[in-house]
Write a protein that binds this DNA or RNA. Structure first.
Lengths: 210, 210
DNA sequence: TTATTAATCGACAATGTGTCGATCGTCAAC
DNA sequence: GTTGACGATCGACACATTGTCGATTAATAA
């Protein structure tokens, strides 16, 4: 049950990397289809025909429907983790850092809204995928927790309890769910801005800045 | 697609309310089964045989599997909404009120953990049920928002923005998800206490008390 | 006692997943 | 050039599960 593709590593041919291309194409098709159809309502047949292959050929690339989504998660992984990670390792002040992280998360939702939505939904639907998703979210939680701990040690934020980790976890899941609710339906930029504003303030107060 | 039972209202008989009893029994069986099996992995056949009837007889009581869960939600509705509602209409101080609401929510999860877990999961899996679930959670959000507004008007809490409603929403979904994560796996009372403590503090700071 | 409505059942149709063996094309080595 | 291995693809199958339908039995009101 290895996640992702199951083709050989060595690329040896002229019609070069036909497989790689197909796999990427399938992921593209899936994410595009996600714009109009919930993942659960989407059949392997639908994806396959959009990609111009037969349904059973899909199983050459992905062991299951869930595995396909898992591959999409892998592909998006970087985009999700990178922003906070880089940002929080600069010397920004806590209040500004919080705002910027929230902005970065918003940007992600703008770019990958349907995918992120699906990730959360599927995380609650199937334990295997849920583990993967939680692992990823935890990366972000940890980065923020360490940031808080550093600021606490430097005397810029009040010490716990609660532990930085506990606060960070609660706040991140709050953001996750609120973004989910917002992007679940049609909405405008104003609503996005208002949400970020609210979340920023809750975060700042919760960690003790301002 | 009327939610819940579809039998006649008038109860007219001796072998009194056989139907009512069956329906309740099915819900009991379902909630008990939920202790060991995720709802998604649970078949109508399984529930039926536990209740001593055939699978197809289930459809006399519930139009679909989702409708069955919806009926369970209806039955649990009171337990979920009542505590906060009554509590927040007394004259408690804000900090104390927050703690007590969180304690009440914890009690609910202790009593109906598997059901509540399923409600959240299914809310993200099927739009129809999701609407019902959100309606219910919104009742709690509104009650808390009104409470905050009253305390703000009385000068006991700093005014917004953010609006009381926005803050209440963010905080409630935070609680929802954190409880979900906690009750998803085996855990002890200490972890429960710690979570309530963390959430209490985040809430109190977020609304501006303390 | 009988007509009516409640309750229950078995059989069926539909849908979608994942598996398997067969096939076909393309490159690498001979 | 031929051939053999493997990458890529397909159609057919088996399986699980849902929801529907018409027939049948049980209970009660008239």
């Amino acid at each position: 049950m290895d996640v992702g593709s199951r083709r050989s590593q060595r690329q040896r041919s002229a019609g070069p990397n036909k497989g790689e291309a197909r796999e990427a194409q399938i992921l593209d098709v899936t994410e595009r289809l996600l714009l109009t159809t919930p993942f659960a309502d989407m059949t392997m047949d639908e994806i396959a025909s959009q990609a111009g292959i037969s349904r059973s050929a899909m199983y050459f690339y992905f062991a299951s429907k869930e595995d396909l989504l898992s591959a999409l998660l892998t592909r998006t992984h970087g985009d999700i983790v990178r922003p906070s990670a880089t940002l929080l390792n600069t010397g920004v002040a806590a209040d500004r850092a919080i705002y910027q992280v929230l902005e970065a998360i918003l940007v992600n939702w703008r770019q990958h809204g349907p995918a992120l939505r699906t990730f959360l939904e599927t995380a609650l639907a199937s334990p295997g995928f849920g583990d993967r998703w939680r692992t990823l979210v935890n990366e972000n939680i940890d980065v923020m927790a360490e940031f808080i701990d550093r600021k606490r040690a430097a005397g810029h934020l009040p010490a716990g309890p609660p532990s930085a980790r506990a606060v960070s976890s609660a706040l991140f899941w709050m953001v996750e769910h609120e973004m989910y609710e917002l992007f679940r339906s049609r909405h405008n930029r104003a609503a996005e801005a208002e949400l970020v504003e609210t979340l920023t303030l809750v975060w700042q107060r919760a960690v003790g800045v301002k």
